[in-house]
Write a protein that binds this DNA or RNA. Sequence first.
RNA 1: GGUUCUGUGGCCGAGUGGCUAGGCAGAGCUCUGCAAAAGCUCCUACAGCGGUUCGAAUCCGCUCGGAACCUCCA
Length: 503
Amino acid sequence: MSLKVYNTLSRKKEEFKSITEGHVGMYVCGPTVSGESHLGHARPYITFDVIHRYLRHLGYKVRYVRNITDAGHFEEEGREAEDKIAKKALLERLEPMELVQKYTNLFHWAMNEFNTIPPSIEPTATGHIVEQIVMIEKIIKDGYAYVANGSVYFDVEKYNTDFSKVGMPYGMLSGRNLEDQLETTRELDNQDEKRNTADFALWKNAPPEHIMRWPSPWGEGFPGWHIECSAMSNKYLGDQFDIHGGGMDLQFPHHECEIAQSAVYNHKTMAKYWIHNNMITINGRKMGKSYGNQIMLSQMFSGEHPLLEQPYHPMTIRFFILQSHYRSTLDFGNDALKGSEKAFKRLWEAYEVLNGLPLTVDRLPLSEAIDDIDVKVNTLLNEFDEFMNDDFNTAKVIANMFELAPIINGIKDKHIPAEALKPETLSLLKSKMKAYIEDIFGLKQEKEGGDKLDDILQLLMSLRKEAKAKKDFVTSDKIRNELLALGVQLKDEKDGGMSYSIQ
RNA sequence: GGUUCUGUGGCCGAGUGGCUAGGCAGAGCUCUGCAAAAGCUCCUACAGCGGUUCGAAUCCGCUCGGAACCUCCA
């Protein structure tokens, strides 16, 4: 059983074979740190975190590179050409790099809340100006870029003509051809520097008010939008690497331009598999700056946003994202998030019950009905791998987990005899659930508090048990109800035991 | 206008040509001092109209609706 991934390049699921055996190079487009990340940004980073974790689970050594775009890009010729980072810095009276640092820190904080594993390398655009200049020089030397007024543009038409012959036309990823684009590209002002409207900037001459600027062979300026990813992926992952990921909205033009730049530079399609996650929508619309409908991650966690009925824990959001397939749109809504919150809680509690089940159970002669349970559990568990290998279908794995939950709880409540599961099945159940829930899906317990809180709650529960034994329900209810008011829910169990869950 | 995708039960969402995921909400039951939790049961859908097929939510066509990209965007 092998891993299959949907490759945007071929629009098909393909068997995954890494270029270097046992190793995977993966590049994912990271955030532009000119502002705070919103809910939509959570999707790619969580999606690729799970892909990263799964590849590791399969035994690959993964070099995961995710950039930080901290140099201002703009492709807004024709409108007010402004470096967005520099502009906001003026408004907020901050140094641009101070601003960049602030949002980088916030991004890292949110990624940590989501329990994502940090990338192996997290290169910044500003830290790789030299590499970008070197790449641009080579592209100019080879005749695929030209200089105009201190800026450098990529000659898309020439590229397309030449590279179509070797199977790398401009538009190969997004499935559009240049002719269509030339017809439909709308008229913009100030296009006279470009030979062709489809051309894109590799280097931009910096106007005087532009704060972020670097010397270059073409004068002071800053890199174009696309070149950093080509330069940095090439530096850390080589001429061709395994996986390039990002949001679907980056397919065109960003990834298309990356492919073209890198193809000129090293005559290869830079990445073998292109993986794109779909968007998070809100009221059916993509969440994004331009729509003014974004909810920042800090707002998601705090609940402070008009559209939010309550705060949502990072793990709720992570679980919510994993409940759908990464290539489908996912619609935000309070009902949906609240559903995920409860679902995750139930799943996690079943997982904790599972961890508490004793491994060695005396086997008794089994009836057929009970044998069926053992078979069913094995089937459900084996499907975990099958589903993940089918283009990372986390939604189906989670569905199976919810079929296992009643069995686990049933054993605890003795609806199902403990010996229904063979020791090796129970052992497999435990190890597989741990591997998937914690290691691959990266889920963790929502509640906090630690040992001391646990000790205190154990004490309160023992007091309540005593009261109950004496049929002093006034006291026992008082303990239960007042704890509930504090957000701690007590649960009486069949055998007179008691447990709690927070929130 | 061009390119691509999409329309599943109250809500969120998987999905394969036939065996009709899963979660949340709702209803009933069991357990329980009560409650909660848990378990069991119920609620059974695939935008519309044609077509292909023994059989389609799943393939094809048309109609209607929605979205993404074509401009910074995860």
